[in-house]
Design a protein around this nucleic acid. Sequence first.
DNA 1: ATGAAAGCGCTAACAT
DNA 2: ATGTTAGCGCTTTCAT
Lengths: 341, 341
Amino acid sequence: MTVTIREIARRAGVSRGTVDRVLNGRPGVKPNVRDRILEIANELHYVPNLAAKALAYQKKPIVFGIVMPPKDIQFFEFIRSGIGAAAEELKDLGVRLDYRYVDNERPDEGAAAIRELVEAGASGILFSVMDDELIRASIDFAAERGVPVVTFNSDVEGSKRLCFVGQDLRKSGLVAAGLMNRVLREEAKVVIVTGSLKFHAHRSRVEGFRQGLAEGGSRLEAVAVIEGFDRYADTFERLDRVLAEHPDLAGIYMATGDVAACVDAIKRHGREGRIRVVCNDLLPAAEQGLRERIIDFTIVQNPERQGYLSLRILFDHVFSGKQPEAEHHFTETHIYIPESL
Amino acid sequence: MTVTIREIARRAGVSRGTVDRVLNGRPGVKPNVRDRILEIANELHYVPNLAAKALAYQKKPIVFGIVMPPKDIQFFEFIRSGIGAAAEELKDLGVRLDYRYVDNERPDEGAAAIRELVEAGASGILFSVMDDELIRASIDFAAERGVPVVTFNSDVEGSKRLCFVGQDLRKSGLVAAGLMNRVLREEAKVVIVTGSLKFHAHRSRVEGFRQGLAEGGSRLEAVAVIEGFDRYADTFERLDRVLAEHPDLAGIYMATGDVAACVDAIKRHGREGRIRVVCNDLLPAAEQGLRERIIDFTIVQNPERQGYLSLRILFDHVFSGKQPEAEHHFTETHIYIPESL
DNA sequence: ATGAAAGCGCTAACAT
DNA sequence: ATGTTAGCGCTTTCAT
C-alpha cells in the first residue's frame, strides 16, 4: 500500500493536521512529537502524493515568477516556448506563471522584479538577466525568504540561486573545433568571431574552440579573434577586412555575433562554399545561411529544453522538495546541417 | 473561474453523476439530457482537471501494457529509460506499467501479449515488435475494444494503432549523406553498409543516403551496398573485400550493422583516419569508434525521447482524450562527434 | 435513468 | 500545541 499522511498520523497517535505541519515545516509542534513523526515518515518512506497535493492547491494556486528580457529578443522565443510546454503540463497541478520582462542592460530592473515577486508571494523564480552585484543581492534576498531562484541561459555565479540551467559554452566551442577539424583536414587558417571578450560568456566559447584546435591532430591555426559586439556593422566590417587580408582563409567560427553579417561578408568576397562556416543557434539568419549552403554547421543547445527543464526543476523542488542533481544543469549540444532542418 | 463538472451539473439541472456519465461516454443517460450536457460543456470549454481525475483513480490505477523485445537488446535500454522517466512523472497520476518481453522474431508472442493485456484490462498499450499479419490483427482487436495501441521504434503500418513514435529513417540517411558531402568535397567513392535490403526499415536509410548523394553538388559515388545482416562476421568479411578492391575508398556509411566489424575492418587495412565513417546510434561500439577517431559522426534519433514521448502520448490520449498531432511522430535527428560526448 | 454520498490524499481554516 | 473538518474536482457505489 502507498503510505499516506493518515497512516503516519495513526502510527504516531496524532492527527493528520499535525503530521501536515511537521512534513511542511510549519511551526507549532512540540519538538519530540515532530521528531517522532519525521522518524515514522522516514521509516515508511513516505512520499507525498502529487495529485492530492495539487488538488488541494487549486484554491490558492502556486505562482512562479519569470524574469527575462522582453519579447522582442528572438532567442528567448524558444526558451519561452519550452517554459510554456512545462507550464501546460503543470497547469492542472495548480501552477501559474507571472512574467516580468526587464531590460537586460538594466540590472536594477531585474533586481527589483525579484523583490516584487517575493513580496507578491511567488513560490519560486525563474531568472535570466545578465550578472550583476545588485542582482546577486536580490537573489540572495529571495533565497533567504525561502523563495528559490533558478537561473537559466545566463547564470549569476556566486549567488544563492538553486541552480543554473543552460548551455555548456565551452563545450559548444569544443564541438565547433571538432567540426572544423573534420572538414578541414590539411593545414588551414580560421578566424574566430565573438561579441566581446570582456564577457565571460563570450569568452567561454572562444576558449573551448581554442582548446579544440590545440588538441592532437588539428592543423588549424586561428589567425584572428574578431569582436563584433553583436552588431551587424562591426561584424561585417571586421570580417571584411580579415577576408581581404587572408585570401586563403579556410574557416570562420561565429562563436557569437551577427550571422547575417558573416554571410554577407563571404558573399561580398565571392567565397561562398570555399569557406567552412560554423555558427551557433538556429535563428532565421543561420537557417537561411544553412539552406544557402554558406554555413556548414550550426551548434544548438536546445533552448526549448532549457525553458522546459528550468521550470520543471523549480516545480519539483518546490512541490516535492527535490534537490537539483547538480549546480549547473547543461542542456545537450546538438549539431545541425541543412539536411537536419 | 475554472469550469467544473459541478458547474455543468448546476446549469443543466442534473447531478454531477449524470454529467460524469455523459462526459465519459458511460451508458444510462437519456439522449436529450446527454445532448444538453455536451452542449453546455462545449460552450463552457470544459476541460477536466487532471489532478482531480488522477486522485480519484488512486483506488484502481490505470495500467498501460508495454510489449517489447527482451532486456538483453542494448538499443532498447535507452527507450526503456525514457519510458521510465515518463512513468516517474505519471506515477502520482495513478499510472502503472505492465511490461511484457517478447521475442522479436516471433510475431505470435507479440500478438498474444496484446490480447492478454486487453483481457487483463489494460487501458492502453505501447508496442514494439516487428511488423506481421498476426500482430496487425491483434492491434486491431485491441483498438476495437477501445484499447489504444501506440507503436514505437518499429511501426506496424496499416494497423489501427493510434500512432507511431520513432525515427525518420530516410532523414537519417539524408543527414548522413549531408555529412559525407561536407567532409569529402572532391570526387570520391563511398560504400553503404546495411542489414538486409529486404527490410523496409533498412532500405529507408539507404534510400535517404542515396537521395543525399543525388542532390546538387555532391561528387560522391556509392560503389557498393553491402548487406551485413547485422552480424559481425558478414559485415567484416564483406567490408574487408570492398576495402581490398577499392584502395581509394574514401567513406563508409554504416546505415545498419555491426559497427565493431566496420572499425576492425578499417584497422586491418591500416586506413584509420583516412576513411570517413558515418554510422547510427550511440551503442558502445560506436562510442568507442568515435573516441578512437575512426568514426567521424554518428547519427542518433533520441531513443530516450522515443520512449518518453510514446508513453506521454498514450497517457494524454487515455486521460485527456487528446488526439496525437500526427500519425507518425518522428524524434529529432542529432549528429554526434567525439567532442559532443 | 438519475441522484446522493463517500472517498482519493492533502491543505487550511477554525476549534479546542 | 494539537484536533477537527470542510473542501479541491472527479469517480463510483448505492439508492431511488
